[in-house]
Design a binder for these strands. Structure first.
Length: 500
RNA sequence: GGGCCCCUAGCUCAAUCGGCAGAGCAGCGGACUUUUAAUCCGCGGGUUCAGGGUUCGAUCCCCUGGGGGCCCA
């Protein structure tokens, strides 16, 4: 190697200049730093599995060709070590000795290979004197030259770098790779569970002329063909119900929904939503379904019903889960009986005792919900179905069969956060119309979160929707629950502000 | 939307009261045939996020803007 830089000095940091000039040196010497095809006979994992416990210094006589990214380099005078890593995180050491590859090839290795490069090594499977399984090279070749230095492998990457440069996070942090696999496992498991239960997966419109099915602020876009504004969906609900009307009696969808709201460690503007509807089922049936789905996901990811969080804590999500009514849970927390008969006046006294601030306009039901959210929800660590909400806080849900002041709805709370929700769906088209009209009046008054009146949805309901149980669960929330991390950890490439 | 904290070498971070901008890893040159964050000797590497202000002097204090994090609503 000469001292002359092959690339003119520009604004590149020193280490990129060095690597770039190594690339140029290779090209000049007729060696391809990016060969189109690189042979390999064994994955690193295959070599490891074939030789689980070689004695230190062992020689197998078996020759393999492996490829991998260089994670560490330790070069001594006549013997070089490199720790190679492949996509699943399997590591294997490559060794290059003067005796095996010769002076020229050893020198070329030292001159050309940097940490972060992909290399191909052909040689005998051996164990080093310290017992490290290795490939003792007869020959080597650059598989892909990296010109940007890999960050320090020992300190933690900053939160920002992890999110903005997820590829680096994936290279360096096994937990980042595990999260990608856990997500894939969860999606696969959910789909398999639904398939086993006779469900049909459908895809409903993401671009909608009317937004509905939830109360949230939508993203707005425009179609030139129709010269009309379109909304990115905030929920698939109204289309899935149309499918149920049409006779798809067990139907689910797992896909993205979009909400034009805050972005923080628990909220992403786009996230994966699971919704499932089952004709002739109730919210009780959906509770069983939801518990089984989640428990299967835990088993698929962790091999048992015990979830392990990134902080090392373990929590058993197995067995039956607790179920309480909203009023029971609030009664427990405040130490006195709260029922649907408790007046707003009495509830206000209780709230004052527990220093929960209320709005003057709130009804008894709204106050009970506020007491729950402020005093109870964060205390519910073990999975708990909280059920039978006042109708005024679940305006689109069927009335409770035993008490018309309540709605047949539950929220599943795990580790202090809502994970899933379900209803015995409202299927009376006249009642449905009345409630949607009330919502559309709010929208007309400028509430951007209120639902618009979807006449086509109402028309479908008028043809007769069977009694139906419906369930919704955030897939990202499920991942957060399983792993004990924030939402941006569970999303591979979360939205981040443009770098300046 | 409100409050607090952060932005310095490729990465992670120091820099006392406002007084020559540093360390570890990484890099470069040299030594080393069994390393495990190798070791030893030597060397280089900076628009201290950007712009403005105060000051003899600003990484540090003030203002504006950008980016990130945490808490609250």
């Amino acid at each position: 190697m000469t001292d002359e830089p092959r690339i003119p000095d520009d604004d590149l940091p020193e280490q990129m200049r060095v690597r770039s000039s190594k690339r140029a040196d290779m090209l000049e010497a007729g060696q391809d730093p990016y060969p189109v095809e690189v042979a390999r006979t064994h994955s690193l994992k295959a070599v490891r599995e074939a030789h689980p416990d070689l004695e230190p210094g062992a020689e197998t006589g078996e020759t393999v060709t492996v490829v991998g990214r260089v994670l560490f380099l330790r070069n001594t005078g006549k013997l070089c070590f490199a720790k190679l890593v492949e996509g699943d995180g399997t590591e294997l050491q490559a060794m290059l000795s003067l005796a095996k590859v010769g002076e020229e090839e050893l020198a070329r290795w030292k001159a050309q290979v940097d940490r972060g490069d992909h290399v191909q090594v052909t040689g005998e499977v051996v164990a080093s004197k310290r017992g490290e399984l290795s490939v003792m090279a007869d020959s080597w070749q650059m598989a892909a030259k990296a010109i940007r230095p890999l960050p320090n492998a020992h300190g933690d990457l900053s939160e920002e770098t992890r999110v903005r440069q997820r590829y680096v996070d994936l290279i360096l942090r096994p937990q980042a790779r595990e999260m990608v696999r856990a997500r894939s496992t969860v999606l696969r498991t959910l789909r398999r569970q639904f398939e086993d239960r006779g469900y049909t997966e459908v895809e409903t419109p993401m671009l909608q002329l009317l937004h509905g099915g939830a109360t949230a602020r939508p993203f707005v876009t425009h179609t030139n063909a129709l010269d009309a504004d379109l909304y990115l969906r905030i929920a698939p609900e109204l289309f899935l119900k149309r499918a149920v009307v049409g006779g798809i009696e067990r139907v689910f969808e797992i896909n993205r929904v979009f909400r034009n709201e805050g972005i923080d460690s628990t909220h992403s503007p786009e996230f994966a939503m699971l919704e499932a509807y089952q004709a002739y089922a109730t919210y009780d049936d959906m509770a069983i379904l939801t518990r089984e789905l989640i428990q299967e996901c835990v088993r698929a990811v962790f091999g048992s019903t015990i979830v392990r969080h990134s902080d090392g804590s373990e929590h058993d999500l197995g067995g039956e889960w607790r179920s309480v009514t909203l009023h029971e849970s609030v009664s427990e927390a405040v130490g006195e009986s709260v029922t649907p008969d408790t007046s707003a006046e009495e509830l206000r006294k209780i709230a004052a005792t527990h220093e929960v601030a209320l709005k003057d306009s709130w009804s008894a039901g709204e106050i009970v919900l506020e007491l729950f959210e402020k005093l109870v929800e964060h205390t519910l660590q073990a999975p708990t179905f909280v059920r039978d909400y006042p109708v005024e806080v679940r305006p689109l849900t069927r009335q409770h069969r035993d008490d018309p002041r309540l709605a047949e709805a539950w929220d599943l709370v795990v580790f202090g956060h809502e994970l899933a929700t379900a209803y015995s769906e409202l299927v009376d088209p006249v009642e449905q119309r009345a409630r949607l009209q009330a919502q559309s009046l709010l929208a007309a008054k400028g509430d951007p979160e209120a639902m618009q009146l979807d006449e086509d949805f109402l028309r479908a309901m008028e043809y007769g929707m069977p009694p139906t149980g419906g369930m919704g669960m955030g897939v990202d929330r499920l991942l957060m629950t399983l792993t004990g991390t924030g939402i941006r950890e569970t999303i591979l490439f979360p939205l981040v502000r443009q770098e300046s």
